[in-house]
């Protein structure tokens, strides 16, 4: 999902940067209020950021014979909310842009939008809808994390498709081309991300017990 440095036309890079900055700015505001109100929540922020750090560093092989990585934002989006998680996800992307030449400064806005913002909101939304539909809590978490992972790569495909329309078929044909690059590789990795997210939620439940601040953890688990 990392769009490489310089690989988006200037106006697209700017547009995504402005869009992402407004979301992340709002997230930062919420985050600083949260830290002031409840210092014990800091450990939750660390745990969710840690999970995203680990998962987004794992380049996993896929059945297509190429490699990609999960995102790890689903967990935090469910536990902390999508705006807070969009800030933590951005930290990962800044680190990778500066020190790993994965993504870049000019494409940071677009990459933050796909992984930290769209990925977080997808996880949060899917989780809420699943719970409303009385889907068992572990299944809801699995679906949220898996779909969040896929949504990130779908948004990357849309961003690239908008920037580089095909000469025949235009934007739609181009998006389809990028989806074909990303989605087959990502499918098994998204399933892995779903499994690992449920695993960590299980660990949180058994180590933390029930915590009123986080209804996800208090709900009947099995």
């Amino acid at each position: 999902m990392h769009i490489m440095e310089g690989c988006l036309p200037v106006e697209h890079a700017l547009g995504w940067s402005v869009a992402s900055a407004s979301f992340v700015g709002f997230g930062l505001h919420r985050l600083s209020r949260r830290i002031k109100e409840d210092r014990s929540a800091n450990l939750f922020l660390g745990a969710c950021a840690g999970f995203a750090f680990v998962l987004s560093a794992m380049k996993l092989p896929s059945v297509t014979g190429s490699c990609s990585h999960p995102t790890g934002v689903g967990l935090g989006a469910i536990l902390l909310g999508p705006t807070t998680m969009s800030v933590l996800g951005s930290v990962v992307l800044v680190f990778q842009a500066l020190f790993l030449a994965h993504g870049g400064i000019t494409t940071l806005g677009a990459n933050v939008f796909s992984m930290a913002i769209a990925g977080s909101f997808a996880a949060w939304g899917v989780h809420r809808v699943s719970i409303k539909l009385h889907v068992p809590s572990s299944v809801a978490i699995f679906l949220a994390a898996t779909i969040s992972d896929l949504a990130t790569y779908a948004v990357t495909s849309i961003q690239l498709g908008l920037a580089f329309p095909a000469s025949q078929g235009g934007v739609a044909a181009s998006i389809a081309k990028f989806l074909l690059v990303f989605v087959p590789t990502q499918l098994p990795l998204a399933v892995s991300e779903g499994f690992l997210t449920v695993l960590v939620v299980n660990l949180l439940k058994s180590h933390l017990g029930s915590d009123k601040r986080f209804p996800v953890l208090t709900g009947a688990s099995r």
Partner: peptide, 10 residues
């Protein structure tokens, strides 16, 4: 990156 992440979580 993963060491820092695992450290925080664990």
């Amino acid at each position: 990156q993963s060491a820092v992440g695992a450290g925080l979580l664990c």
